[in-house]
Design a protein around this nucleic acid. Structure first.
Length: 271
DNA sequence: CTTTGCACCTGTTGGC
DNA sequence: TGCCAACAGGTGCAAA
């Protein structure tokens, strides 16, 4: 589920419920996430106050004063805010209990997600330290992207999804952004022109912003919601539309695979 | 260093 | 209806 917009919408959804709250307990029903959940975490977290929430790439960050919780939703994770005592369902792996009487619940069938604790700053954490810039950073421009892609032979689609280059562009938005920029996904990175780089950055920013806005508008009360309400229902231009007519020119959308990931494009609009 | 393929895991879908 | 293979929105890691 989670591409960057959903993670950001989730952050905004949980923020009013967790910021300023004191952690009264942590229940871990299944430790076997992508990395084992630290068995000492319930003891470590009890009594700490969550000062604020942040997001870096697709990592949710909870500032607990003495350290930070780093939460990743993987492919199938979601967070919800529930009242204490709500019965856990299958794949509800972790409850973070709060002094408000609510709890933050992690649900993740595939268990590719992560629930980590660090006493350093998140920016210094091994998983975060080597990440590229956020799509909305001031340094992220067409000129910057052109410099990053120079000399690279890998498909530009793969490079856009490389988190060391830039974060937040998942499999859906890579296809969508390349369509809007009118660039074929299989083109070697080094062969993307400056004008196309400008269009790519504009497309990435516009697509992400629109999705966050759409998700945010469905976010009245996050309690009980699973954090995936609405935003992903927005219509895509190419993603998951193989064989369907291009919304711009009418030609059939094509499906290809790059590094075993489904990739959609219009062979007429994108060169 | 860059690029590629695999791995983790469960649930859903489509073809036979 | 049942069975099985292929696939699913992420990303760290090993190997080439």
């Amino acid at each position: 589920m989670p591409e960057l917009p959903e993670v950001e919408v989730t952050r905004r959804g949980i923020a009013p419920h967790v910021e300023g709250r004191v952690i009264t307990g942590l229940v871990v029903r299944n430790h076997a996430l992508r990395w084992p959940v630290d068995p000492t975490l319930p003891k470590v977290l009890k009594g700490l106050r969550i000062a604020r929430t942040q997001r870096r790439a697709k990592y949710l960050l909870l500032d607990c004063g003495r350290g930070w919780l780093i939460i990743h939703l993987g492919m199938s994770g979601s967070l919800s805010v529930l009242n204490r005592g709500a019965p856990p369902r299958l794949h509800d792996h972790i409850d973070l209990e709060l002094d408000s009487g609510e709890l933050l619940r992690l649900h993740d069938p595939r268990r590719f997600g992560a629930f980590l604790w660090t006493q350093a700053l998140p920016a210094e954490h091994e998983l975060i330290a080597h990440l590229g810039p956020e799509p909305f950073d001031a340094q992220v421009t067409g000129t910057w992207l052109r410099a990053q892609l120079k000399g690279r032979k890998a498909p530009v689609k793969n490079l856009l999804m490389d988190t060391r280059l830039i974060v937040g562009v998942g499999n859906i938005y890579a296809s969508e952004a390349l369509f809007h920029a009118r660039v074929r996904p299989g083109r070697a990175g080094g062969r993307v022109t400056l004008a196309e780089c400008h269009r790519l950055i504009a497309a990435i920013q516009a697509t992400l912003a629109k999705a966050i806005e759409a998700g945010g508008s469905t976010l009245r009360d996050f309690v009980g919601a699973d954090g995936s309400s609405g935003y992903f229902q927005q219509t895509h231009f190419v993603y998951d539309r193989a064989g369907a007519p291009c919304r711009v020119c009418g030609h059939a959308i094509k499906l290809a695979r790059f590094s075993q990931r489904s990739t959609y494009y219009c062979s007429y609009c994108q060169q």
